[in-house]
Every structure is written in structure tokens, then in C-alpha cells.
Simulated scan of single mutants.
Amino acid sequence: MKRSLEERLKDGPVIVGEGYLFELERRGYLQAGSFVPEVALENPEALKQTYRDYMNSGSDVVLAFTYNAHREKMRIIGKEDLLEPLNRRAIQLAKEVAKEHPKEEALVAGNISNTNIFDSEDPESKEKVRNIFREMVRWCKEEGVDYIQGETFYYHEEALIALEEIRNQGLPAVITLGLMGENILRDGYTVEDSCRILAEEGALVVGMNCFRGPDSMQPYLEKVRKEVDGYVAGVPLPYRTTEEHPTFFNLPDSGCRCHLPLETTFPTALDPLYHNRYELAEWAENAHRIGINYIGLCCGASPAMLRAVAEAVGQDTLNSKYSPDMEKHFLFGKDETLNENNTNYRGKA
């Protein structure tokens, strides 16, 4: 029998591969802007391959791609009739891929996320949000997920509603917050206070994901780690956010020489602003050292980046055999049989 999420957390860090949203847009199967995961129905093999690529690169979890696949988003694009089929199919595909793992079947996580309609002053909006989560969680339960990850909440109370609905179905919950540029959740909670309350209310794992890269997320992860007794998640973006520009929504590119049609690098011109895999591995080592237990990367992450993160915390991934080895490179290799005319030229290349 495969180990549960809690059993794996007790044995060491759990790696979670996210970032499907940007990766599938980059591969040509998803529209930037609306960012709705119709790929589960339109191109299921593309989604399965993406799941597989992240799993083989170290993810202990196949996270069902239902981010933004909620009733409000489907209403905006006029496809509410596809809501339930999309959710169920995304989970079914995740289960198929999870069974392919040759060492231990990967966990399958359901996924619910920020609704963008939550209003802390409007009881009606709160009820709409609860109903959105309730139906998605029920589908997750019926499809047999191992746990549910509720993510990218920038209101504490919305995160709490998500947790309540997950707990009502008797499933383990991972709840992660997206911290905007004000450095505080929109209903006034600090991220560490919110995480402490969510843990006290029964979340197995609490922490942060998305919006921020390692540099602008790590100080808050340290605060959460000090405040929370249980398991803590850190799932940053792979972008070079800063104290001045803490999120990727307004991250500038001083070297850009063209007109950006959206007048911002987000979401389709962030390419020059990546951390490299070695910087991300260094972050993962630091996160692991301070006691972050549930470690991954979010929007923008590639499988190669995730592999570097997994290896940095001691994991040997299925695709570690493809990790960089320059020994036989024609310019930079050290193999004695290489052509010396090339290796002697490396400094001039």
C-alpha cells in the first residue's frame, strides 16, 4: 500500500510539482489570461504527459489540474456545463499517471483555489464561495483523491472556508496562502497568524504558494515556521522577485527592448526574470534546513527546475539520470579522450 501524505511527511520532505498553468500555456495547450484548464478535456494526453514529466522529476504528488476550474471561472468563459466533467477528468488522468511510478505509487491530490469573488463584507459572496468549494471537494472525494490542496488564498477567511469543506468530507488538507504586495492578507491577517489558525483548525499542512519567488517568500516562511507546530509548505515561483517588487504581477524587466502589449511582464514576458536551477536548489536547501516539509515550485517552474529542488533536499528522482554531467562535453568536458583542439579553445568560445 502506498504511504499517505502524513506518513511521507514523517519520513522526510515531500516534493510537490506545480506550475502546470504556465507550463501548458508554454506548450501551447492553454490560453494566458483566462487561464482555465480546459486541457483536461481538449488535450488529455498533453495533460497526462505534463503530470508525468513533473512526477518523473521528483514530485511525490500528482496534483489534479483543476486550478481555476471552479464555477465562477467557468461562468466567465461561458462553459459552466463543462465544470463537473473537467474536474472529474483531471483527477482521473492524475490517478492514471500516479500508478505509473515504478517505485511507489504517487499521491493524488485534489485542488481548489482562490475564487476571486470572496468579499469579507458580503455574506452572499461567502456562501457562493462555500458552494463552489463544496461541490469541487465532493467530486474529489468521489474520485478517490488522497488529500486536497487548497491554494493561493489571499483572504484568510476564504482559506478557512476551504479547509472546513475539505474537513467536512473527511480528507486531509494542505492549505497555502498567496501573499500580495501589501505583505498582509486582504482581510488583515498576517500570513503567520493565518497559518497558525488554519493548523489549529485541522489543516495537515499550512504555508505559502505562488505570487512570490524564493527571495520575497522566504522571510515569511521563516515566520510561519516559528508560529506553527505542524507541517509547513513552501511553494514559490521561480522568478526573481524582490523586496521592492515582491510579486510577479508587477515585476519589471529593465532589459526589455520591445513594446509589451499588456504593459507588464506578467504573464507572458517573464522569461528573462527566472532564477536558474542552481539558485532554486540553494533555496530548497535553505527551506529544508529551517524545517519546511512540503517543498515545491509554482507557476513558471519547469520539470528540470523541480528536479534540482528535489535533488537539493536529498531525493533521487526517476529522471536524475538526466541531470547535468559535463564530463564529455566537447568544450567543457574533462574526459581525456576529447579533442584537445576544442577543450583548449573553451575560454575563447
Score class of each variant (00 low, 15 high):
residue 282 E to K: 02
residue 204 L to N: 03
residue 316 D to F: 12
residue 161 I to G: 01
residue 80 E to Y: 01
residue 340 E to M: 07
residue 269 A to T: 02
residue 349 A to I: 14
residue 266 F to T: 01
residue 170 G to D: 10
residue 24 L to D: 08
residue 77 I to H: 02
residue 117 I to G: 06
residue 253 D to P: 07
residue 315 Q to H: 14
residue 293 N to W: 06
residue 260 L to F: 07
residue 207 G to E: 10
residue 197 I to P: 05
residue 194 S to I: 09
residue 165 E to K: 09
residue 125 S to R: 13
residue 216 S to V: 13
residue 337 T to V: 10
residue 224 V to K: 05
residue 297 L to G: 00
residue 157 E to K: 05
residue 130 R to D: 03
residue 34 S to N: 10
residue 215 D to A: 15
residue 78 G to C: 04
residue 289 R to N: 07
residue 86 L to E: 03
residue 140 C to E: 11
residue 120 S to A: 15
residue 254 S to G: 02
residue 138 R to P: 02
residue 63 L to G: 02
residue 29 Y to W: 14
residue 41 L to D: 09
residue 114 N to P: 02
residue 148 I to F: 12
residue 67 Y to A: 13
residue 166 I to N: 03
residue 243 E to S: 12
residue 246 P to L: 08
residue 71 R to E: 12
residue 36 V to G: 00
residue 204 L to S: 05
residue 208 M to R: 08
residue 275 H to R: 14
residue 42 E to N: 14
residue 94 A to N: 04
residue 227 E to H: 14
residue 337 T to S: 14
residue 338 L to T: 10
residue 75 R to P: 06
residue 58 G to K: 12
residue 124 E to S: 13
residue 122 D to E: 02
residue 166 I to P: 01
residue 292 I to Q: 03
residue 292 I to G: 01
residue 75 R to D: 12
residue 115 T to V: 11
residue 30 L to I: 07
residue 308 A to Q: 03
residue 110 G to N: 05
residue 338 L to I: 15
residue 163 L to T: 15
residue 209 N to C: 11
residue 60 D to V: 11
residue 246 P to E: 13
residue 110 G to I: 09
residue 178 G to Y: 05
residue 244 E to G: 05
residue 90 A to G: 07
residue 292 I to W: 08
residue 110 G to S: 08
residue 5 L to Y: 08
residue 165 E to P: 05
residue 185 L to H: 05
residue 287 A to I: 00
residue 286 N to R: 12
residue 279 E to Y: 06
residue 168 N to K: 14
residue 323 S to T: 13
residue 195 C to L: 13
residue 248 F to R: 10
residue 64 A to Y: 11
residue 118 F to A: 04
residue 26 R to V: 12
residue 49 Q to Y: 10
residue 41 L to T: 12
residue 209 N to D: 08
residue 65 F to A: 00
residue 30 L to S: 03
residue 36 V to K: 00
residue 112 I to W: 07
residue 6 E to R: 15
residue 198 L to T: 07
residue 297 L to E: 00
residue 179 L to K: 03
residue 289 R to S: 09
residue 304 A to E: 15
residue 318 L to N: 09
residue 342 N to W: 15
residue 118 F to I: 13
residue 307 R to V: 11
residue 62 V to F: 11
residue 152 T to W: 00
residue 82 L to E: 04
residue 341 N to S: 13
residue 79 K to E: 04
residue 250 N to I: 06
residue 343 T to G: 08
residue 273 L to T: 04
residue 301 A to D: 03
residue 294 Y to P: 02
residue 123 P to Q: 07
residue 275 H to P: 01
residue 12 G to R: 08
residue 214 P to Y: 12
residue 7 E to D: 14
residue 200 E to G: 01
residue 73 K to E: 08
residue 103 K to G: 01
residue 17 G to C: 14
residue 115 T to C: 12
residue 34 S to V: 08
residue 90 A to H: 13
residue 60 D to E: 10
residue 32 A to F: 12
residue 67 Y to M: 07
residue 59 S to E: 09
residue 326 M to T: 13
residue 189 Y to E: 05
residue 49 Q to H: 14
residue 31 Q to A: 15
residue 161 I to Q: 02
residue 314 G to N: 13
residue 324 P to H: 12
residue 335 D to V: 14
residue 191 V to I: 13
residue 337 T to K: 13
